[in-house]
Simulated scan of single mutants.
Amino acid sequence: MLEYEFEEVACDEGGGGWSPFGGFGMETVAHQEIIRRRAEEGWQYVGFIPKRQRAGGFLETIDLVFQRQRPET
């Protein structure tokens, strides 16, 4: 059976924000560090979910989604 975990990443550092309709003004590398760390722990990155979004469509935070096979007990 698979288990899932979620890790929040801020997308609004620097005030620009990111929009799924054509982002501007911001670049984050925090997600790369998180994905690498999780991979070392046996987790696989499977996607992201917008968590908090401004009225203009700009994402403020996302949840990175990770899965792995649940250890047999």
Score class of each variant (00 low, 15 high):
residue 27 E to I: 08
residue 35 I to M: 10
residue 6 F to G: 11
residue 45 Y to V: 01
residue 56 G to F: 06
residue 70 R to L: 10
residue 16 G to H: 05
residue 67 Q to M: 07
residue 18 W to Q: 00
residue 48 F to C: 07
residue 71 P to L: 07
residue 11 C to H: 01
residue 3 E to Q: 13
residue 26 M to V: 15
residue 35 I to L: 07
residue 17 G to E: 00
residue 27 E to G: 14
residue 1 M to I: 02
residue 58 F to P: 01
residue 1 M to R: 10
residue 34 I to V: 09
residue 57 G to N: 04
residue 25 G to V: 03
residue 11 C to W: 03
residue 30 A to L: 12
residue 46 V to K: 07
residue 3 E to W: 09
residue 58 F to M: 10
residue 30 A to G: 09
residue 22 G to Q: 02
residue 24 F to D: 08
residue 39 A to W: 03
residue 42 G to T: 10
residue 53 Q to C: 07
residue 55 A to M: 03
residue 64 L to A: 06
residue 20 P to V: 12
residue 67 Q to R: 14
residue 69 Q to H: 07
residue 39 A to L: 06
residue 61 T to F: 04
residue 41 E to Q: 15
residue 60 E to F: 05
residue 1 M to T: 05
residue 59 L to T: 01
residue 52 R to F: 03
residue 64 L to C: 05
residue 47 G to C: 00
residue 34 I to P: 02
residue 71 P to F: 01
residue 5 E to H: 12
residue 35 I to N: 00
residue 8 E to M: 11
residue 73 T to D: 10
residue 26 M to S: 15
residue 61 T to N: 00
residue 5 E to Q: 15
residue 31 H to I: 04
residue 28 T to S: 10
residue 35 I to V: 15
residue 27 E to S: 14
residue 29 V to R: 14
residue 9 V to F: 02
residue 58 F to Q: 01
residue 27 E to A: 11
residue 27 E to N: 12
residue 8 E to Y: 13
residue 15 G to C: 06
residue 54 R to T: 10
residue 38 R to V: 05
residue 21 F to K: 10
residue 56 G to H: 08
residue 17 G to N: 02
residue 46 V to L: 07
residue 4 Y to I: 07
residue 60 E to S: 08
residue 51 K to S: 13
residue 73 T to P: 01
residue 48 F to W: 13
residue 40 E to A: 15
residue 3 E to A: 05
residue 44 Q to S: 13
residue 23 G to C: 04
residue 60 E to M: 12
residue 13 E to P: 00
residue 67 Q to S: 11
residue 33 E to S: 15
residue 36 R to Y: 11
residue 46 V to N: 04
residue 23 G to I: 03
residue 64 L to M: 08
residue 19 S to V: 06
residue 37 R to T: 09
residue 7 E to Y: 10
residue 50 P to A: 02
residue 3 E to F: 10
residue 72 E to H: 04
residue 73 T to E: 14
residue 23 G to K: 02
residue 46 V to M: 06
residue 28 T to F: 01
residue 12 D to H: 15
residue 65 V to N: 10
residue 44 Q to D: 11
residue 73 T to Q: 14
residue 64 L to G: 05
residue 22 G to V: 09
residue 44 Q to V: 14
residue 36 R to V: 07
residue 60 E to K: 12
residue 55 A to T: 03
residue 22 G to I: 04
residue 8 E to D: 05
residue 28 T to P: 04
residue 62 I to M: 06
residue 54 R to L: 11
residue 7 E to K: 13
residue 70 R to N: 06
residue 29 V to T: 05
residue 72 E to W: 07
residue 18 W to M: 00
residue 73 T to S: 14
residue 51 K to Q: 13
residue 32 Q to E: 15
residue 15 G to Y: 07
residue 4 Y to P: 02
residue 30 A to D: 14
residue 62 I to D: 03
residue 7 E to T: 12
residue 39 A to R: 09
residue 30 A to F: 13
residue 18 W to R: 03
residue 48 F to M: 10
residue 5 E to N: 15
